[in-house]
Design a protein around this nucleic acid. Structure first.
Length: 353
DNA sequence: CATACGTGGTT
DNA sequence: TAACCAAGTAT
């Protein structure tokens, strides 16, 4: 009979191989008594939701430089925070980030709650993030279950039930392994293991601290786990984006409504996005078809955006949106799909960039 | 329980 | 090129 997986073996591996991350307190520093800053742990966990470490790093550095603590972030302008989040995706996270920071300041005296339930009552903090902050920031024995943990548990126990059906069972398995000692380091260790050794495609079982007790390794099924329910095909939607530039170089942009796709973000005015979009120019002008489409894929559909451009006079009065002065217009503040529109259109417009 | 919600890297 | 994947949450 194989021996059962031991949290201690994973912690030993973590002590030697923990990744050095901007928001992380190393296991050595942690054992010396250094405590993580809950603000930085919270911010990193929100950014890391469905997002890779590589993509998060520069955003984390920028945010913590601009807003070093929760009070500073709570006092920030919405537009500034949304602009800094541009490109990272899942923009509801940024809207909830601000709501959460302001709630922490207004309702909790500027300190994050120190219980999982208290954390989970805040905007943008769900089951995973509440457990992660509890464990990592406060060293509470909460069980984190993210995609890494699901994969590691499914393999360790050779569980073939497909996700999301398997989620409760995987959570129970993860819960049974969570140690009372060093739960914060343990939580980070399982995720590091999933991110660097027990990877989705070709896991490095040969150097895994849990190779001996791993049931999927024994059965040779590790590359097939966890199983997942088949995904739906993505439909293609069409749309029209309008890029208007005033003679002084100002660009017409609109802030999108808070609800829905790209909510709260800046973008070029446009039609609806559907199979048969209705033209809807934001002002009267001689619109010219750029002749090139911006193509972009969202989570659940492909988009092909036709681009119309126009140069307009200084007295142009848009029905929608507002002109942004040339010197305050930053394409980097646009969500990626809109930045693609910019990239395609800017060669056509004299004063852009 | 299913769906909406971004993006960039990898295979 | 297209599909898959990443430290999920809200509704």
């Amino acid at each position: 009979m194989r021996e059962t997986a031991q949290p201690g073996d994973l912690l030993d591996w973590y002590d030697a191989h923990a990744r050095d991350l901007p928001w992380r307190v190393s296991p050595a520093d942690r054992s010396a008594g250094v405590r993580p800053d809950p603000y930085r742990i919270w911010l990193s966990e929100i950014m890391l939701q469905q997002t890779t470490v590589a993509a998060v790093k520069s955003y984390f550095e920028r945010f913590t430089t601009l807003w070093p603590d929760v009070a500073a972030l709570a006092a920030a302008e919405d537009a500034d925070v949304m602009a800094e989040w541009a490109g990272l995706g899942y923009y509801a996270r940024a809207r909830n980030l601000l709501k959460c920071a302001r709630a922490v300041v207004a309702d909790h005296g500027g300190r994050f709650p120190q219980t999982r339930a208290g954390l989970q009552a805040l905007p943008g903090i769900g089951p995973y993030t509440s457990a992660a902050i509890s464990a990592i920031a406060y060293d509470l024995p909460e069980t984190v279950v993210d995609g890494n943990v699901e994969r590691v548990m499914a393999r360790l126990h050779d569980l073939h039930t497909p996700l999301p059906e398997a989620k409760p069972a995987l959570t129970a398995l993860a819960d049974a392994l969570t140690p009372q000692t060093r739960p914060g380091d343990y939580a980070q260790a399982v995720m590091d293991l999933g991110a660097t050794i027990c990877t989705p495609r070709s896991p490095a079982c040969g150097i895994c601290p849990w190779r001996a007790p791993c049931a999927a390794r024994a059965a040779g099924t590790m590359a097939d786990l966890p199983r997942k329910s088949p995904k739906k095909p993505k439909p293609t939607r069409l749309g029209i984006a309008y890029v208007a530039q005033r003679d002084d170089g100002a660009i017409l942009l609109e802030t999108r409504p808070d609800k829905g796709l790209l909510g709260g973000m800046l973008g070029f005015p446009g039609s609806d996005w559907s199979e048969t979009p209705e033209p809807d120019p934001p002002l009267e002008a001689e619109w010219q078809d750029l002749g090139e489409e911006a193509r972009h894929t969202f989570t659940h559909f492909h988009l092909r955006l036709r681009i119309m451009v126009a140069q307009v006079g200084g007295n142009a009065a848009p029905r929608r949106g507002a002109f942004h002065p040339r010197h305050s217009y930053r394409p980097a503040s646009l969500p990626t799909v809109m930045r693609k529109v910019h990239d395609l259109a800017h060669g056509r417009l004299r004063e852009m960039l």
